[in-house]
Write a protein that binds this DNA or RNA. Structure first.
Lengths: 150, 150
DNA sequence: ATACTTGCAAATGATTTGCCAGTGT
DNA sequence: ACACTGGCAAATCATTTGCAAGTAT
């Protein structure tokens, strides 16, 4: 066994079950971790580690470590939207994949199933298995596409 | 007028025409710039600014500035392959788009036209105009797809 | 001659690491 | 008790910025 998350990624929808998951993974339930999770539940979208650290009044280094730990046990995941810091979000009811506008920064989160056709096409054509949850599809959103170069 | 690259992006295939292009854009042809371009012509793939700076015995800061200048006049472009530094390449005979393996780091460069079907699909589905030259399609290469989780 | 460039130092932003005091189990 | 954490300082990596001396045109 490696060290955690052997079984299928468990689902969870609230703070208590997330904490339970944490405990189940052999990690301790600390104030800092509870706070990070609360902040993520409260957030409406992915947050940077820095943001979360500030929000909970903890330091960034520990927050990075905690996010990494939470990620190892499948509670959290992060995405890189263009330049800028990694953004963390709860896994909650499942994965999300992203489209990111490199002109205005707009981001659209979609259900992975919606991109299966695209994924299949890439796979047929190149044999590569695309995943847009960690690194999104980058380009221009509808508005910026209309605006042309600018 | 903004300041450079007003006309269509000119094509070029060798160092002299790249330098001509530089001059045409109102930039000076300096030793450092000639060396960066030589290094890029010699390279077999995209290089980091750090790499180039070391290769030509110049400092990183100036190299970043030069690459940015070369990029502004359409001679050079850069791509972000997963984590890690931006990688620079000559535009040469045209753009390239990339597929990057987040497991082994393998990268495949392809002609943009090949990805037009994928692009069209994304556009139909979301109205977004995908561009995989600056940020690639990230996922698993054929080998790593076979290997499963590991 | 003048404006553009260079190298060097130092600042920034994102993230990681070492360490020791503090705490969950 | 004891191993796992938290905060703090400091290091690292990628990139940018300020500046004074050097150079292409």
């Amino acid at each position: 066994m490696t060290h955690a998350a052997e079984g299928a990624a468990l689902r969870f929808a609230d703070l208590p079950s997330a904490l339970e998951e944490l405990r189940a993974a052999g990690l301790r339930v600390t104030a800092a971790r509870r706070l990070v999770l609360e902040a993520l539940f409260a957030a409406d979208g992915p947050c940077s580690a820095e943001q979360l650290a500030r929000a909970i009044g903890g330091d960034a280094a520990a927050t990075y470590r905690n996010l990494e730990a939470l990620e190892r046990c499948g509670i959290v995941r992060h995405v890189h939207l263009g330049h800028g810091p990694g953004l963390y979000a709860l896994v909650g009811e499942g994965e999300r994949e992203y489209l990111h506008c490199e002109r205005c920064g707009a981001t659209r989160a979609v259900d992975p199933a919606e991109l299966d056709t695209v994924r299949a096409l890439v796979r047929e054509q190149y044999g590569w298995q695309a995943r847009f949850s960690h690194f999104p599809i980058v380009g221009r959103c509808p508005e910026c596409t209309r605006d042309g170069d600018g």
